[in-house]
Design a binder for these strands. Structure first.
Length: 486
RNA sequence: CGGGACGUGGCGCAGUCCGGUAGCGCACUGCAAUGGGGUUGCAGGGGUCGCCGGUUCGAAUCCGGCCGUCCCGACCA
């Protein structure tokens, strides 16, 4: 446990704030191995809630879970040309086992396309075997040079969905369906608005035909890629002989998709909602949604107050809320308040002797808007009746707050590369412009402004009047989103 | 992987220049009081000074190598 009372304010040094808050909220810690992390119970609890929600959504869209092995033959990774080029530098390779050098090195999976499609090839003969709709929850390793807890670590946890379809159209539909699932999850559960869209060729997944992305804006106004969904075409099918016989008797290669989100989402949540007091966990993800802090002086008071706290916990728990009574005796109430705020618990209830007399409780929301009372004194019955609805309302407030911030910092109508740079330097955020599709414009923006092409936004996010000119000067064929990114 | 900074009880640091065997604050343990926003008092415990090697009668301190963390750049869920 650390002693420093206050965190570095976000305005002073956002990345110092992030590093401190992740550790002091007890989300994660550095492991003895460079670049990898230990996810602590509070952080893992949040991840488990994310997993559960996503897993339900995957099941609802017809997917099943399976598990494929950690180790992949080197030759598999090497089979798809772009894929191997994309991953080669960050592979961890097992060369020795059982005290001997292996005949063929084994790669610790950086992602599982190759094994999975090799297996699908064994399982699929006819169009009747399609589609295959599988997902796996797994760890992967990518040897990163520069790491940060949750945002980029050498080992991370994620889910990877892998599907095989009889037609291009069906695979395309699946790719977009799962992108939509991600968007809904990020908005409804993380309370994090995203811009969805298509990646440019230079930013797409190594081995994909098309990559779609969810891009979120963090509080330092940088973009974070929060999830991706790939249409893999027949690239992997061809390399792994994933063929099937059509209803007309012809042999064809299957069409694949893959899609994933990772523990990076925990970092995204921290950078979307956290404040100078700590992290803020949206109610739907919070391992503890309501913490009850008993207040007392004498022993007899303590017994009465803790009994009331336990009773409240039971009554709220019966409504499905996750509640904890903090009856630790060696900390005074103030210390508990600070601790649970740092950990982002949405609501706190204080119960003391005075409340017992009056039949009331004190309710405190983790984030209060300007002008809103910090502490509310509510009749006990009202608090019990309303808390569930208040959690829902808080969840919505967080989303709206984040959306408003993103809109405030989204800029449309920039006409030149210089203008893009000026906007990024003066205010930062998302910049929408026209684009001709010319990769050299992308390179110039990157070189001159450090911003990257985050995506070609989906219709929901495009400007009302499409830009006519590319920032490079030519005629625009699409609208794109630029930002400095993580 | 290049440039820079740092590494001393759990955390934050002083001591390093000028070598003489380790200190401060917080945290932790015990007791008592306190308890509605980080509570006091008293009494305690805990450190092969990142690791390995060298110089020296003697190394936290000087030298070499390695490892790790952070910041800045090139690559990335």
């Amino acid at each position: 446990m650390t002693d420093d009372k206050a965190l570095t304010p976000r305005s002073e040094d956002f990345s110092a704030w992030y590093n401190e808050v992740v550790q002091r909220a007890e989300l994660a810690d550095h492991s003895p191995v460079r670049g990898s992390m230990v996810i602590r119970p509070w952080g893992y609890g949040i991840w488990e809630n994310m997993q559960r929600a996503l897993d339900d959504m995957f099941k609802e869209t017809g997917h099943e879970n399976a598990y494929f092995p950690l180790l992949i033959p080197m030759s598999f990774i090497e089979r798809e040309k772009e894929h191997v080029e994309g991953f080669k530098p960050e592979l961890a390779v097992v060369t020795h086992a059982g005290g001997k050098e292996l005949d063929e090195p084994l790669v610790v999976r950086p992602t599982s396309e190759t094994v999975i499609y090799a297996m699908y090839a064994k399982w699929v003969q006819s169009y009747r075997d399609l589609p295959i709709l599988l997902n796996q929850w797994a760890n992967v390793i990518r040897w990163e040079l520069r790491t940060r807890l949750f945002l980029r670590t050498s080992e991370f946890l994620w889910q990877e969905g892998h599907t095989a379809h009889a037609t291009d159209e069906e695979a395309q539909e699946e790719t977009l369906r799962m992108l939509g699932v991600y968007r809904r999850f990020m908005e409804e559960w993380i309370a994090m608005p995203v811009v969805t869209g298509l990646k440019s060729d230079s930013e797409k997944f190594a081995g994909a035909v098309r990559t779609y992305t969810c891009e979120a804006m963090m509080q330092d106004l940088r973009a974070l890629q929060a999830g991706t969904s790939h249409h893999l075409g027949q690239n992997f099918s061809r390399q792994f002989d994933l063929t099937f016989q059509t209803e007309h008797g012809e042999e064809e290669y299957a069409w694949n998709t893959s899609w994933g989100v990772s523990t990076r989402l925990v970092g995204a949540m921290v950078m979307t909602h956290g404040d100078d007091a700590g992290i803020v966990v949206p109610p739907k993800l919070a391992p503890v949604q309501v913490v009850i802090v008993p207040i007392y002086r004498k022993e007899d008071q303590r017994a009465a107050v803790v009994e009331k706290a336990e009773e409240l916990k039971t009554r709220l728990g019966e409504q499905g809320m996750r509640v904890r009574v903090d009856d630790r005796d060696h900390l005074n109430p103030g210390a508990k308040f600070y601790e649970w705020e740092r950990k982002g618990v949405p609501f706190r209830i204080e119960v003391g002797p005075r409340d017992l007399e009056k039949g009331q409780v004190v309710l405190v929301k983790r984030v209060t808007a300007e002008g809103e009372d910090r502490k509310e004194f509510l009749p006990e019955g009202q608090a019990v009746a309303e808390l569930s609805a208040r959690l829902d309302a808080f969840q919505k407030e967080l989303l709206e707050r984040a959306r408003a911030r993103r809109e405030t910092h989204s800029h449309r109508g920039a006409g030149s590369i210089e203008e893009v740079g000026e906007i990024l330097d003066s205010s930062g955020g998302f910049v929408y412009t026209g684009w001709s599709g010319d990769p050299s414009v992308e390179e110039r923006i990157k070189a001159e402004t450090k911003a990257t092409l985050r995506c070609i936004p989906d219709p929901d996010f495009r400007s009302e009047t499409p830009p006519e000119r590319c920032v490079g000067g030519e005629r625009a064929t699409s609208e794109v989103l630029w930002a400095r990114a993580y």
